[in-house]
Amino acid sequence: MKSGSLVFLTAFVALAFSWTGFVLVPQLQLGRLEAAKTVPAGDAYPVARSGQARQGAEVYRSLGCVYCHSRQIGQQGTTVEVTLTSVGTNAANVLSAIQKAAPHLAATASLASVPQVLGQVADTALADDAVTAIAEAGGEATVAILPDGPDIRRRWGRRRSVAQDYLYDPVVQPGIRRFGPDLTDAGATRASAEWQLLHLYAPKTVVPDSTMPGYPFLFVERKIGKTPAPDALPLSGTFAPPDGHEVVPTEEAQALVAYLLSLRADAPLYESPVTPPPAPATNGVAVATK
């Protein structure tokens, strides 16, 4: 290269290409993304966070949580599961209907008990065929879309993360490290504020072999007044404060926990379908989907 202008031209062209591709095009494609509707319920998604949770997002950013915790779920494929919920009046009829519509589902079907997971089919069209056939025979069946992959089996999220999930985050931090677990669905798997506060104060109180540092500076240790504070942490053993003292969370800690509890990403969307678990009975407890 003989002249400076040629150097600049090369650099300009190369960088302009990549700027167009990775900055301009995503902005045009996703920059004006609007809230979506869940499928099939039709609720608006995502929902804006409460004021306290928004403050908590600032604490999350300021403490650099992203340097250990990602917030993005990957997915490797989806399984479609058909569940027989009722055999109606004529069980044999239903069985033959299943045999006709999806022979491999009938192989294990005993019809002795309902609801009963019949098995997995290749896609939703086949599942719908089976459900229609069962319905015609007088029975009832449901279809569940179950995303799969290590992240989902770890119960870090119910489906892969999509652009919608981050729409209302002031600072988007998908994170690239998992020195700690992914927090996409932290609000669902660890729904107890007390657990979250204890974990922030001294992680080993609730996860004995945790590698996370505690954040005692988000708490105040003080003398117990006339009555113990209602939000004092229930600490015992080596973590307990000296006698006559209590550990209470500061506003920052409360906000951070409110934010962590607001982390949910299980809304079924068109671009990332998932069938939510049937009943809220499992709320707050980590349950493997499979």
Binding site: V23, P26, Q27, L33, D169, Q173
Partner: peptide, 22 residues
């Protein structure tokens, strides 16, 4: 695009990764 006039949603992540990659 990240600090003065932040773009919305995942576009932020795209810009941040583009910057880090470059």
């Amino acid at each position: 695009l990240l600090q003065m006039h932040p773009v919305r949603g995942v576009v932020q992540a795209a810009v941040a990764w583009w910057f880090a990659g470059n």
